[in-house]
Simulated scan of single mutants.
Amino acid sequence: MSASAAAVANPAPTASVPHTAMVLAAGLGLRMRPLTLTRPKPLVEVGGAPLLDHALNRLAESGVERAVVNTHHLGAMIESHLAGRSSPAITLSPEADLLETGGGVRHALPHLGADPIFVVNADILWLDGPIPALKRLAATWDPAVMDVLLLMMPTVAAVGYDGPGDYHMEADGRLRYRAEGELAPFVFAGVHIVKPELYHAITENRFSNLRLWQQAEEAGRLYGMRHDGVWFHVGTPDAVEEVNTLLGHPILHDAKLSQPRKAEP
């Protein structure tokens, strides 16, 4: 087994965690309507707290010091919700025009620094396994061979997901995007580590992170790590109800789920 394969299979939990994260919270949440007609999707409550709070709490618990949060749809509500939060420290990155996932990160580069960062979708929900997923990602991250490291969820275990999957993963963690019409065993779980300098090479303002992942895959530098906890696909109002029901089930009742963090005075 190669060194990188061993790291993916059994990452050491003591690796340094990125101190900065980009939290993607600018989407329109069209599939979540009518809930998102009056609130942005990251503020939809699931499991007793807004989705955005779950993501930020996970980051804070893993040692991330600063989170840059982009906003667009009903962005003033997100700004108000985050006012006073100190862990992690929040920097807002408003977007007058929706820039998609990659464009949102590129727009926020002045706030992100030069070191590798976490990028987290603000509309996902996961439960950790024995070691927090963010710490496992940090321990698996190897900048010598990786440009991007994605958290991957097996499609058969992804709660509420019924799509064709995204990637095939080799034994050493390298990823290959599925061919057209093909089914893939892993779906992207909404969290990854990336080198910010990759965004400097893109001249367009609006683009998807998938573009950078494709480039990394072509260079053999796109890797994945399998999530060992529970992951929920929360895309519709019905899914919100389903996940809330599941979180009350005895099997998941004692699983660790961050509680809402109150704003400090």
Rank of each mutant, 00 (worst) to 15 (best):
Y161R: 05
G181M: 06
I131D: 06
A122D: 03
D123L: 03
D142H: 11
F186W: 09
A179K: 07
A201P: 00
D172A: 04
A138Y: 10
G160Y: 03
P164T: 10
L151A: 15
E182P: 05
D142L: 02
A179I: 00
F188A: 04
Y177T: 02
D142P: 04
V159H: 12
P154L: 07
W126D: 12
A144W: 02
W126C: 05
A201D: 11
T155K: 07
A122E: 01
P185N: 08
G190L: 10
P130L: 10
R178M: 05
D172H: 01
V187W: 04
M152R: 12
D123S: 12
P132D: 13
L198G: 00
A139I: 03
A158H: 14
A157P: 00
F188R: 04
L149W: 06
L125R: 05
P143W: 04
E182L: 10
V159D: 07
I124F: 08
P164Q: 07
L183S: 08
V145E: 07
R136D: 07
M153P: 03
H168P: 15
G160I: 14
A171E: 15
M152P: 04
P132F: 01
L137C: 08
L198N: 00
V187P: 00
D128V: 05
L175W: 02
G181A: 08
W126G: 14
L198T: 07
P185I: 03
H192Y: 08
V156W: 01
M169I: 02
R178K: 14
D147Y: 06
D172F: 08
D172P: 02
V159N: 10
H200P: 00
M146W: 05
L125C: 13
A201R: 13
P164K: 02
V145T: 13
A138M: 12
D142S: 13
L134G: 04
K195L: 11
V148Q: 14
Y177V: 02
P164N: 09
P143T: 03
P130R: 13
A201H: 13
R176T: 09
L150H: 12
A144V: 11
H192N: 08
D147R: 09
V145I: 12
K135M: 14
P196H: 03
A179Q: 11
V194P: 08
A189F: 04
A138T: 13
M152C: 15
G173N: 02
V187D: 04
L198A: 05
H200E: 14
G129Y: 06
V191I: 15
P185R: 15
I193L: 14
L125I: 14
L127N: 09
E182R: 11
G165N: 02
W141I: 04
L149A: 07
E182T: 15
D162C: 07
K195I: 11
G129M: 03
G190V: 08
F188Y: 14
A171W: 04
A144N: 13
A139G: 15
T155W: 02
V145Q: 14
L175M: 05
V159C: 12
A144Q: 15
D142N: 15
